[in-house]
Each structure stands twice: as structure tokens, then as C-alpha cells.
Simulated scan of single mutants.
Amino acid sequence: MTPLRAGVARGGIELRQTLTNGIDLFTYLFPALLLLGTIFFMRDAHVPGTTFSLGASTLPSILGMGLAFGGLMTVSQQLVVEREDGTLLRAKATPNGMSSYLIGKAVVVGGMTLVSLLIQLVPGLLLVGSGLHVSASGWLMLAWLVPLAFLSTMPIGAVLGSIFENPRNMGLIILPIFGLVAISGIFYPITAMPGWLQGVAQLFPMYWLGLGMRSVFLPDSLAAVELTHSWRHLETFGVLAFWAVLGLALAPWILRRMARRESGSAVAARRERAIATMGR
């Protein structure tokens, strides 16, 4: 319970700082505003062969992408940066520091991801609300889908962030994340992809996250374009829960192994390399 209390307290402090920092808010909210602009210009278009709004069909995918990026990209980027500036080393030096650090990251990134989700959801429903009708069971599903989606993706982001020491190598993190999102069916029907690629996509939580978001907001008639022509709620819960359990079991162990290699001299050496690079 001590690491849990310390992690929640740490995350709460970072979350308050983020909510009062203009640059941090811009980093989180600007992409959400861009995506809302996309929905606005698509609101009068229609899904080919139907009278259903293209903007309405795109909104669940945008919400799913925001959740996936929050758990994968934000966590990995913050971990790389805080490894270089010594934050991770200070966490290692305190009792239960790595566990509380990971819990704190879950609180702050999860909180800001939820804020971004609401900023996209509420105006998005106003823009294309006539095409979306969420039932009571849909809201209940959303209540377990959002936290489970974040818990299934955040540990993956933490593992990816632990691999790289240099923030200038973040492109190596972003590329595989974009690759997984590209084949997940979030923006393009997975049924149009080759069979082997469909199988690869279903191994990762991003496909199931997008499928779950579509099942909440879209009418059942649009399930015809999905694999098996159904929303597959049980499979969605099972795969996301599997990744959440696996990730939460492995991520702290991987981070502790990575933290054992951290030292004051290693942090100082990385800073010297960064200064030398900027001076060229």
C-alpha cells in the first residue's frame, strides 16, 4: 500500500502541475483540436454506399487513437526524457521508488488522456450527434473500456521507453507505434487488409480498442464491415485484460532492471553528450 499511496500522491502533484502549465496543456490539447477540426469538415460527407455521416463514423476511431497514443507514446516519451534528466535515478534511490514512479505515471498520463478524451467527445457529439446514439449499455461498456484500454497500452509504452536512453532516438519509438496503429483498423477497415496482416493486428490491443469504441458509438448495422460481422465484446474484454495483466506484471520488472544500470555517472555522461550535440 505504501508504493500505491506514494504513486497516487506523486501522480496527483504532476497532474496539477500539468493542468496549470500552458505548454503542457498545449501539447495535450492541440492534437485534440486538430482532430475535432477534421470531424467538422467531414460532418456532411457520408460513408460510401450509405447515408451514415462519415464524421460520425470517424469520431470513435479518433477517440480510440487518442487512448492508444496516450498509453503508448506519452508514457514512452516521458520515460526517455526522465531517464536522461535524472528523475528515474532519484526514484531508484528511494524505497519502493520504481513502483511508485510507475503508478504516478499512470495517474498523470491517465488523467490527461481522460481530459483529452472528454475534450474530443463532448464537442464531437455536438458536431455529429444526430448520427450517434449511445445506449445505456454502451455507456457502461465505455466505463470499463477506457481504463482497461489505458492499462493494456501504458505498460507497452513503458517497456518501449525503457529500451532507449537518448530522447533524440524517439523516432525509433514512434515508428513501431504508428505501424501498429496503421494496421489496427482504427482508421481503415481491417477487412480490406491481407489475411496475415489481420492476424497480426488482432494480436495487439490497438485493434480491440478501436473495435470497442466503434461498438459503443456506431449502430449495429455497421458491424457488417467488421471481422465476423459482429462487435465481439467478450473477445475485446479478454484481449485487453490479458495485455493489462501481462504488462503490469512485466513492466515494473523491466523498469527495475533498467534502473539498476542507472548511476550518477551515466546521467552525467548523457548530459555531456547532449550538450556536445547541441553545440555542434
Score class of each variant (00 low, 15 high):
residue 239 V to Q: 12
residue 185 G to N: 05
residue 42 M to T: 14
residue 173 I to T: 01
residue 5 R to E: 13
residue 67 L to Q: 03
residue 180 L to T: 01
residue 251 A to M: 11
residue 141 M to H: 13
residue 59 L to M: 08
residue 173 I to V: 10
residue 199 G to S: 04
residue 168 R to H: 12
residue 119 I to L: 11
residue 154 M to H: 10
residue 22 G to S: 14
residue 225 V to I: 14
residue 4 L to G: 08
residue 182 A to G: 11
residue 136 A to M: 12
residue 196 W to R: 10
residue 41 F to W: 11
residue 244 A to H: 08
residue 23 I to W: 12
residue 117 L to C: 03
residue 20 T to A: 01
residue 215 S to F: 13
residue 9 A to P: 12
residue 124 G to R: 09
residue 55 G to R: 06
residue 135 S to E: 15
residue 272 E to P: 08
residue 150 F to Q: 00
residue 207 Y to P: 07
residue 77 Q to G: 11
residue 18 T to A: 10
residue 261 R to M: 12
residue 84 E to H: 11
residue 176 P to T: 07
residue 231 W to Q: 10
residue 47 V to P: 00
residue 82 E to V: 06
residue 197 L to C: 02
residue 235 E to I: 03
residue 58 T to R: 00
residue 187 F to G: 07
residue 143 A to K: 11
residue 256 R to K: 14
residue 246 L to T: 13
residue 9 A to T: 13
residue 114 L to N: 05
residue 36 L to S: 01
residue 267 V to C: 04
residue 155 P to K: 08
residue 211 L to M: 09
residue 143 A to I: 05
residue 112 M to H: 04
residue 214 R to W: 02
residue 143 A to Y: 04
residue 124 G to E: 06
residue 121 L to N: 01
residue 144 W to N: 08
residue 90 R to N: 05
residue 229 H to V: 00
residue 199 G to N: 09
residue 3 P to W: 09
residue 123 P to I: 02
residue 30 F to K: 01
residue 231 W to L: 06
residue 153 T to D: 05
residue 137 S to H: 07
residue 193 M to I: 11
residue 22 G to Y: 15
residue 160 L to P: 07
residue 124 G to Y: 03
residue 65 M to Q: 06
residue 182 A to M: 13
residue 151 L to W: 03
residue 187 F to T: 12
residue 168 R to P: 07
residue 26 F to L: 08
residue 232 R to C: 07
residue 33 L to M: 10
residue 175 L to R: 09
residue 147 P to D: 05
residue 223 A to V: 06
residue 246 L to E: 14
residue 190 I to V: 13
residue 267 V to F: 02
residue 161 G to K: 05
residue 189 P to Y: 13
residue 262 E to N: 11
residue 54 L to D: 00
residue 19 L to M: 13
residue 126 L to S: 10
residue 90 R to E: 04
residue 82 E to T: 09
residue 115 V to L: 02
residue 231 W to E: 00
residue 153 T to H: 08
residue 142 L to P: 10
residue 90 R to V: 00
residue 252 P to W: 04
residue 90 R to F: 11
residue 79 L to H: 04
residue 245 V to Y: 15
residue 137 S to C: 05
residue 270 R to S: 10
residue 57 S to E: 00
residue 26 F to G: 00
residue 129 G to I: 08
residue 271 R to A: 07
residue 151 L to E: 03
residue 216 V to D: 01
residue 2 T to H: 15
residue 20 T to M: 09
residue 23 I to V: 06
residue 15 L to F: 09
residue 156 I to R: 02
residue 235 E to L: 03
residue 187 F to K: 00
residue 97 G to L: 02
residue 5 R to D: 13
residue 175 L to K: 07
residue 206 M to F: 14
residue 201 A to C: 03
residue 44 D to V: 12
residue 102 L to A: 04
residue 179 G to H: 11
residue 141 M to A: 12
residue 250 L to A: 14
residue 68 A to L: 09
